[in-house]
Design a protein around this nucleic acid. Sequence first.
DNA 1: AATCTACATTATAATAATTCTAAACTATTG
DNA 2: CAATAGTTTAGAATTATTATAATGTAGATT
Lengths: 142, 142
Amino acid sequence: MPKNCNFIEKLREVGLRPTKQRIKMCEVLYNREKTFHFTINDLVKMISEKMNEKISLATVYNTVHAFEKKGYLKEISIDSHKSYFDTNTSAHHHFFDEDTHELIDCDDNDIDPVNIKKNITGKKINSVEVLVRIASDNQTQK
Amino acid sequence: MPKNCNFIEKLREVGLRPTKQRIKMCEVLYNREKTFHFTINDLVKMISEKMNEKISLATVYNTVHAFEKKGYLKEISIDSHKSYFDTNTSAHHHFFDEDTHELIDCDDNDIDPVNIKKNITGKKINSVEVLVRIASDNQTQK
DNA sequence: AATCTACATTATAATAATTCTAAACTATTG
DNA sequence: CAATAGTTTAGAATTATTATAATGTAGATT
Ligand SMILES: [Mn+2]
Ligand SMILES: [Mn+2]
Ligand SMILES: [Zn+2]
Ligand SMILES: [Zn+2]
């Protein structure tokens, strides 16, 4: 259970001023057991609830992108119509539930390492990520 | 080298009226050796050039989505800020060049089959796709 | 071939997500 | 305490996409 002062230090280390909005955002994002996925709108709601006070949408966008640039957050592309972010910034795979639009992390045991046999000259591989799209199985098997 | 009459038939089979806009769109999309990737704006430009006449953006959006629903096109999510479409509608993997924003298809020889060991009860797997992000390799190795 | 009708195209307006702007505010430094 | 550089904010601007409603057209019916 990290305390706010950790977030203050964390923000300072990265060159961001620890304002009350950013600290609240850190609490919402990082004061939890597990990493999670969210959209900007999700996040605005969560912060507003925890603050009993509105936070400007622009601030959330700006700070999310600042965090992303610093490697505190990662953007996930599964749906070209919506931006998802992930507090799990490591390279990892996902299940995406097409019914609920829920993103689920895979841990390393869930998917064997992907073997890339092609290499493109002059280019290095930055990441290899698998997206498994799932949906409810309505094949009523007899 | 398919002729237009093939596109007319193709459109008819699917229940779409073969209008001159749709036929032109088919030519641009399918009258070529290899499949390719495009954005809506790419496509509007390509069609307008081939027609010597403007085509409405709404028509392109509507028809692209009609084609997508019919399985003639596939939407690819690599960048949450832009929609890419693919005339290769089969399940396949991609390289995404982060320098040029170019999408490159992998063929089956390029990546070994991905082994999913996790299964989620009540859900079936719709697709498994790998995205390999690449960028220029600037490690000037001595 | 002329007419009919359902479906298409189009210009334009509406919506939604994101970014920009510039004024008011605040954390930090001296 | 100022002074200052960085921050938040409301609202405007921009961009991508979708909806609307008037006009046009492909294919069927006479
Ligand atoms: Mn973004
Ligand atoms: Mn779409
Ligand atoms: Zn994740
Ligand atoms: Zn492709």
